[in-house]
Each structure stands twice: as structure tokens, then as C-alpha cells.
Design a binder for these strands. Structure first.
Lengths: 234, 234
DNA sequence: ACAAAAGTGTTATAGATACACCCATGC
DNA sequence: GCATGGGTGTATCTATAACACTTTTGT
């Protein structure tokens, strides 16, 4: 790739700006991240996050959505939010580039078509990653885990309609520990995050009661637990 | 641009990068923010946040700390953290500049010397502000309020030693509603955030029991309440 | 003694977990 | 009938809010 940094660092104040996304999805009951394998130096063959350069007419969120549209049909992204800036001067070899990192989510029932150099990898068993991209993946994972607790962000990981069992598997995979279906249902219902659709699925081959189907009441991010330790007087 | 496999638009633009901080302090029992008044166009006479251009050799956090040192003795900043990126293409007139915004905190018992064009303003009664700086101030306020609930961030607003009454006034001002001293003390103590120093202050002129002095057990930001709705099995 | 401010004891309430038990289906 | 998975009822636990009451000082 470009340059020997002969003139670049001397060009005072020129700071490149890129956007990168940790796009997460639950696949095979594991939290996985979308990565593509670099074909060129630097960091050849290492895996890196999708993204690219910020263009003139877009803000950072428009930019990451545009760039992801080249990898994944953008309509399949159920949620995008900003994480933070990664700006160590030497985070990339060559010219200086500041990155704005994002968390992106894809529902578990979609399987977006991706280029040949791109694949899903479990977040807890990452391949060798390029630059500081592993840090960004971990930041994305941590943000998701935190928000599962106090927001309705599960809507972005689950299909539109699902059984409580399916939702339990999704939450367990994302959080990294087993959650009980019984309490998951109750907590989310009491908060008004979840509601039954009235429909059910047929029982499985081994029998059993046919599961009811549920949906999220809202598909926009909402804080559902103010978790205010110091609660305003009622 | 190193390391993207996407071909984005031609590089017409030079994207500047600035860092800005909403520096907050409790003064006169109100949450106030440090602003300086612009002397030149654009937005003459409007009030704006301290900050400036990202230099070549620093990351964004080093940069904002350096720039604040020009306004406030940097050692008086008890906490600095990144908020988010503001990147609308037209957020400033003229050349495009992306801003990384920070929250900065100053303890209530310090009164940093500041330039003549700089003053503190209550966050709930801001003067006319420049560009998108009001948004950044509100983001700083909201971040502070959220973290008061589930972290020990109060250490950054309070003096090293304080009475529970003083702390109550600080929390009340920052949160925007009255908190009760009795419960404040208990919640923070049970979490191990607060501890008595063993010393007391003399009673006030009107009498009353002499208050005990307390301190925060740690002066680094720590999450004290995991507020995990889906708690890992014990 | 009395007023004032600080601090403690006690109860109430909310929101979660744990677990036993009942329900509906296929074979 | 019975195994299997789904769903509900109920007890328990934890943490905070509310408030009455006690403590310690100055005048």
C-alpha cells in the first residue's frame, strides 16, 4: 500500500479520518464479528474491520453506513452506534489516520452475502487482527453486553418474531453466560420491552408444548431501566 | 489511505480535526461549564468550548489535556473522558472540521485562574453558544449524570475531604434534583466508594453536631454497580 | 434547656433470582 | 401414559427510599 512516509508526516496537521465498524451477530450460538482478510501490506493476511475513509459530504455515521453497504446489504443492519475515537499517532504505519469506531448489529436470522475475503469469526477466538482492530472489537462487545442489561437492544440481535428459547440462546451467547428463559421473559415483559404476538410455533419432533411467539415492542433503541441509584423523588 | 479495500471518493477534502471539552464544576450549588467568548467571526461574541487543533504527535486525549492546560492548570482536572465525535460536514462555516468531544471535571474546592475572555456559566442557563457547542455541553452533562449513578465519579466533583452535607449539595446540583444525605451516605458506603477519615469539622455558628469528614476510597473512575439485569450465576 | 445540624435504626418497596410445579404436545 | 420442552406461581434475596429517632454541639 502507499507510502513511505517521506512527505506525509511533514505535512503538518493533515490527519486522515477513517470509520470502522465492529459488526456483530449471533451465529451458531456464538457472538461473531465480521472481518475481512487483508491482501496487501501492511499487515498482510491479518484480519481487519470493514470501513474506510470519511468522505467530504457525510458525517461519520452516514459514512460507516455507506461503507458497510458495500459489504452487507445496509438494510440488514438493525442497529449502528458510535463507540469512540482511536487516535494514537502510530496506530497505523505511514500517514496518520484517526478512526471513529462503531458498533453494528445484524439479526440472527439473516445471512448477508459477503465478498470472498470476508468472514465471520467468534469474538472469543479471534484470528490475528490488523492494527488496533482487536481493541475495537472488544469495545463493541463490551458496549453490546452493557446495553443488553438496561436497554431493549436485544431487538437488534433477534429476528422479528422469536420464541423465548431462541431469545435465551441469543442473550446467553451475547453475554457469555447462561441466562434463564423464565426470568428473561419476565424481566423484559415487565419492562414492556417484549410482547406476545398471539401466534405459536408447532412443537418439535420430540414433542413438547408449542412455544408462543414474541416480538419486541419497539425496534428503536430505548433505555428501559433508568438504573438510577439516586432516583428523582416520585 | 492505508488498508481499505474499498475505493471511496476522490480525496478532495482536507478534514481538520479538533478536540473540545465540556469542563464542568459545581459552583454555588449549580452545575457550571467553562466557556470563552469569541472575539472574531464567525460567531463573534458567542461562547464556545475550550479546545483546539489535534497536533501530529498526540492522541485526542493528550491533545485535550494539553489544550486545557492553557486555560486551567491541568493538574486541577480531576477527570477527563471521551464523549463522542461531532462530524456534520457543515458544523463549522468554511473548512470542514471534525470534533472529538470530551467531558472534563474540576473539584468544587478549586478555582482555576482563567483568561479574561473565559468564564463559568450554569449549564441550565447557557449564554448564546457558538456552532454546535451547546449540544456538546448537554452531552457532557448527561454523561456525568449517568455515571454518578453507577460509578464513583463523584470523586472528581468533590474536594479530597468533605462532609456528607457538602457531598449532598454536590450530587444534588449535578443531578438536578435533591438527594437525601442519609441515603447518599449509605449507598456510597455500602459500595465501598466512601470512607470516613476519622476527623471531624467544628460545628457551625448556629451549633449542631460536628460533621465527620469523608473521602473517596479511590480517585480513579470505577464502575461500582454492575447494574446487570441479567446477572451471571453466582 | 433548646435549637440546629449530623447521623442511625427501622420499615417499606421495588426489582430481580431461584425453584417447584403445571401445561400442551408427539410418540 | 410418559417423555419433552414451554410457561406460571411463589418464595426469597438484595438494594434503595422513606422517615422517625437519637446524638452532639452552640447559645
Amino acid at each position: 500500500m502507499p507510502h513511505t512516509n517521506t512527505s506525509s508526516r511533514a505535512d503538518k496537521g493533515y490527519v486522515g479520518h477513517e470509520v470502522l465498524a465492529g459488526v456483530l451477530q449471533i451465529r451458531d450460538d456464538r457472538l461473531q464479528v465480521m472481518l475481512w482478510q487483508r491482501a496487501q501490506e501492511p499487515d498482510v493476511h491479518r484480519w481487519s474491520l470493514p470501513g474506510g475513509r470519511l468522505a467530504d459530504t457525510e458525517d461519520v455515521e452516514s459514512s460507516i453506513r455507506r461503507q458497510l453497504a458495500e459489504k452487507v446489504d445496509v438494510h440488514k443492519l438493525s442497529h449502528v452506534e458510535q463507540l469512540s475515537v482511536f487516535s494514537k499517532p502510530d496506530r497505523l504505519p505511514g500517514r496518520r489516520v484517526v478512526a471513529t469506531a462503531f458498533l453494528g448489529l445484524v439479526p440472527s436470522d439473516t445471512d448477508p452475502a459477503m465478498p470472498a475475503d470476508t468472514a465471520w469469526h467468534p469474538v472469543d477466538a479471534l484470528p490475528p487482527t490488523a492494527f488496533d482492530h482487536e481493541l475495537i472489537v472488544l469495545a463493541a462487545r463490551d458496549r453490546l453486553r452493557a446495553k443488553l442489561s438496561y436497554t431493549n437492544i436485544g431487538f437488534a440481535l433477534a429476528p422479528v418474531e422469536f420464541t423465548v428459547s431462541e431469545l435465551r440462546r441469543i442473550y446467553s451467547a451475547a453475554l457469555g453466560y447462561q441466562v434463564a428463559a423464565t426470568n428473561l421473559q419476565r424481566v423484559l415483559s415487565r419492562r414492556g420491552v417484549l410482547e406476545p404476538t398471539g401466534r405459536t410455533l408447532p412443537a418439535g419432533p420430540a414433542g413438547g408444548r408449542p412455544p408462543a411467539l414474541f416480538q419486541f415492542t419497539s425496534r428503536d433503541l430505548q433505555v428501559t431501566d433508568p438504573f438510577a441509584v439516586f432516583r428523582p423523588p416520585t
